[in-house]
Nucleic acid binder design. Structure first.
Length: 576
RNA sequence: GCACCCGUAGCUCAGUUGGAUAGAGCGCUGCCCUCCGAAGGCAGAGGUCAUAGGUUCGAAUCCUAUCGGGUGUACCA
C-alpha cells in the first residue's frame, strides 16, 4: 500500500513543489466507483498556485505520466484520481501475502523496544464478571498487535491480591467459625459468598468495616495465620482464573500481584520523603496535588497500612528498573482515570522522566440495568453483574443448539461450541471503540447474527472448506506456486474488491497500534468476511477455468483473515 | 462544583492526523439454494451526524458554549 503511495508521490511532488512526504500523507482511498484507487486532493494547492482546485487537477491529469503499475490519471471534483493496473495490483498484493504469510503486515516500528502491558488484573477472592472480559481481551489483543509491530511485549497480570478486602474475607471466615480444616475444600464460590455476607453483616454492624481494616493492618505487619489464610484464598482464585484464561486463549508472562509490592512500600515512602513530597493530613500521609487541581494521593492510611497507589508507585519503579520499558500500558477501565493521573504525576514529582512512557489505556464500562431502570456500573458483590463463566456457558449451550440445527457433522462438539462462543463474545467486545460504555443485556450478548464473531468465523470456515475440497490444508499458501498465474483472470468485481481489502492489512495493523485499540482490526476482519462471502458467492472456484487463480486468492484471504482473527483473539476455526 | 468519557438511521454501532454522494448489523418490505457451507448473497425503505456559534476552500471529525447520559472525586481496589 505504502509503495503505491510512494510511487504516486514520486510523480506528483516534482510537479507541485510539495515534498514526497507531504504528498504521500495527503493521498486518500476514494469511497465511490469511478474515483479510481488512490486520490490526491488538490485543494491545498489552490492558494499557492492562485488557481481553482478543479483547474489544477485537470492540468495535472493532462501533463503527468501514470507511475508504473497505474493505467491512468483522471481529474474529478478537484481530485486527482489514480487508477491501478488491476492484474499488476493483484500480482503485487498476492505475491507479497504468499511470500510473507503469517508475517504479512509485520512492521518494524517497535524493533528493539520493550512494552509492558498490564491488563486483566482482577481482584482475588472474586469471580470474574462479564465486564472483566473487556480489559482482558483488549490487553490480549494489544499485546499481539505490539508484538506484530516488532515490540518485545511483557504481559503482566497485576493481581489485586492485597488490601482491605482481605481483611473482610478473613473477618467473615473467622466469624463463620471456619478453620484450617475448611481450607482444603475451599472454592471461589465460597469466597464470593463470604464477601456478600460481609456486606450484609456490615449493614447491621458498621463496626465490621473497622475490624476488616484492623485485620488487614495485622496481615500487612506479618500475622502468620492471617498470612496462611490469604495465601489459600489467593491460590483458590488463581486456579479458577487460569481455567478461564485458557478457555479464552489468553496468556500472561508474569503474574505479579500487589502483595509482591507490599514490602517495597517503605522504599517508596523513603523516596517520597527524600524529595520532600510527603505531608501529614487528617492523620494520613499524603502527596499534596492541589497545585495540579487534583485531590491528594493517599500514601499511608491513618492506621499505617498502605493503599493501592502506594503499591502502584512501587510497581512502576520495579517495572522500570526490571524491564527498562519504552512504554508501560495500563489497560484499566475509564473509571480509574483520576487514579492514573495522580500516579503519573507523583512519578513525575519524584523526578522520573520516564513517567511520560507510562500510559493509561482506558476502556468504557459495562453497565447493567438497575432495579429503578437506570443504566449503571454493575457490582459483582450484589449479584447485579453477570459472571463471565455463566455467560460463556449460556453462549456455548445456545451455539450447541444452532450447530445441531445447521450442521449435523459437528453436532455435539462442545469444544467447538465454546470456541464459537468465545469468538462471539470477544468479537462483540472489540468491534466497538474501546471507550464506549456497553449496556449488558442477555439477549444482546447471546445474539450471534449479522456483524458478529460467528459471521467472521464462518467466512474463515468457508475458505478452509474450499481448500480442503481441493486437497489442500488451510495453511497451504506457502506451497502454492505463483508460476503461470494469469493475474488478469481475477477481474470480477468481488475478486478485485477482496484483493483491495487484503492489501489494507498492514495499514490496519499500524492504525490499531497507534490508537491502542483493537477496534480497527475487528472492523477490518468484518470487511474481509464481507469480501469473502461475496467472492465465494459470485465466483465458483473448484472446477472453474480460473481454478488456479481463484484458489490462490482463497488461500491468501484465508491467511490474512486468520492473522486478523488471531490479533483480536477470535478463534480461527476450520469448520462449524 | 470540578475531572474523564459518550451523544451518528426506530435499536446497537462503524466512520475521528479535516476531504467527493455519511456506512454496517438488527428490525421492517421483497428476491436468490438441481450451484465449493444459506451462520450466506442481492434489492428497497429509513439521517437537520444532540443543539448553537466559531476556524477553514471544505467539519460527523478541530475550538467554545449549552443540553442529555455514564463514571470518578481522602483513608476500597
Amino acid at each position: 500500500m505504502t509503495t503505491f503511495k510512494r510511487d504516486i508521490a514520486a510523480v506528483v511532488a516534482p510537479a507541485t513543489g510539495l515534498t514526497l512526504e507531504a504528498v504521500e500523507s495527503a493521498i486518500t482511498l476514494p469511497q465511490h466507483e469511478g474515483q479510481g484507487d488512490f486520490s490526491f486532493p488538490c485543494f491545498p494547492l489552490a492558494k499557492s498556485l492562485r488557481k481553482a482546485p478543479a483547474a489544477i487537477a485537470a492540468e495535472l491529469a493532462k501533463t503527468l505520466q501514470p507511475p508504473p503499475g497505474f493505467t491512468k490519471i483522471e481529474a474529478l471534483n478537484g481530485y486527482l484520481n489514480f487508477f491501478v493496473d488491476k492484474p499488476d495490483f493483484a500480482r503485487r498484493v498476492l505475491s507479497e501475502i504468499a511470500r510473507s504469510e503469517a508475517a504479512y503486515g509485520d512492521n518494524g516500528l517497535g524493533t528493539g523496544k520493550r512494552t509492558v502491558i498490564d491488563f486483566s488484573s482482577p481482584n482475588m477472592g472474586k469471580e470474574l464478571a462479564f465486564h472483566h472480559l473487556r480489559g482482558t481481551m483488549i490487553g490480549n489483543s494489544l499485546s499481539k498487535v505490539y508484538r506484530k509491530c516488532g515490540y518485545e511485549v511483557v504481559r503482566v497480570n497485576h493481581l489485586g491480591d492485597w488490601g482491605t478486602s482481605y481483611g473482610k474475607l478473613i473477618v467473615m471466615f473467622l466469624r463463620e467459625g471456619l478453620g484450617e480444616a475448611d481450607l482444603s475444600g475451599l472454592t471461589l464460590e465460597k469466597l464470593n459468598a463470604l464477601y456478600r455476607s460481609f456486606d450484609a453483616a456490615s449493614k447491621q454492624d458498621p463496626g465490621l468495616e473497622d475490624e476488616a481494616r484492623r485485620v488487614f493492618a495485622q496481615l500487612e505487619s506479618g500475622d502468620g495465620w492471617f498470612r496462611r489464610l490469604w495465601s489459600v484464598f489467593r491460590d483458590v482464585t488463581l486456579d479458577e482464573l487460569k481455567r478461564l484464561y485458557s478457555i479464552l486463549g489468553v496468556g500472561f508472562d508474569i503474574y505479579m500481584g500487589e502483595a509482591f509490592f507490599a514490602d517495597r512500600v517503605d522504599d517508596v515512602v523513603g523516596l517520597l520523603q527524600a524529595r520532600n513530597l510527603l505531608k501529614e493530613s487528617q492523620g494520613a500521609v499524603v502527596v499534596d496535588l492541589s497545585a495540579f487541581d487534583m485531590p491528594p494521593a493517599l500514601i499511608r492510611k491513618s492506621d499505617g497500612s498502605t493503599l493501592y497507589i502506594t503499591r502502584d508507585i512501587a510497581a512502576a519503579l520495579y517495572r522500570h528498573t526490571e524491564y527498562g520499558f519504552a512504554r508501560c500500558f495500563y489497560v484499566v477501565d475509564n473509571g480509574q482515570s483520576l487514579h492514573f493521573q495522580q500516579l503519573f504525576k507523583v512519578l513525575e514529582l519524584m523526578g522520573n522522566e520516564w513517567h511520560r512512557q507510562c500510559e493509561h489505556i482506558p476502556f468504557g464500562l459495562v453497565l447493567h440495568k438497575s432495579e429503578e431502570g437506570n443504566w449503571e456500573k454493575g457490582k459483582t458483590r450484589t449479584g447485579q453483574a453477570s459472571l463471565l463463566k455463566d455467560v460463556l456457558e449460556a453462549a456455548s449451550e445456545k451455539i450447541l443448539g444452532i450447530m445441531a440445527e445447521k450442521n449435523p457433522e459437528v453436532a455435539g462438539n462442545s469444544k467447538l461450541a465454546m470456541e464459537i462462543a468465545v469468538g462471539a463474545l470477544v468479537f462483540s467486545e472489540l468491534k466497538n471503540r474501546r471507550l464506549n460504555d456497553i449496556r449488558f443485556e442477555w439477549d444482546q450478548a447471546l445474539s450471534f447474527e449479522g456483524d458478529s464473531g460467528p459471521y467472521v468465523q464462518n467466512a474463515h470456515v468457508r475458505l478452509c472448506s474450499i481448500l480442503r475440497k481441493a486437497g489442500l490444508s488451510p495453511a497451504s499458501l506457502a506451497s502454492m506456486t505463483l508460476e503461470g498465474i494469469r493475474w488478469e483472470l481475477l477481474k470480477e468485481a468481488s475478486a478485485v474488491d477482496l484483493i483491495d481489502t487484503l492489501a489494507q492489512f498492514p495499514d490496519k495493523v499500524a492504525v490499531s497500534m497507534e490508537s491502542r485499540d483493537p477496534c480497527p482490526l475487528a472492523q477490518y476482519a468484518l470487511s474481509i468476511a464481507d469480501g469473502v462471502h461475496r467472492f465465494v458467492h459470485e465466483c465458483r472456484v473448484l472446477g472453474s477455468s480460473k481454478e488456479k487463480e481463484r484458489l490462490l486468492l482463497v488461500a491468501a484471504a484465508r491467511s490474512v483473515l486468520g492473522s486478523a482473527l488471531d490479533l483480536i483473539g477470535v478463534p480461527a476455526i476450520e469448520s462449524m
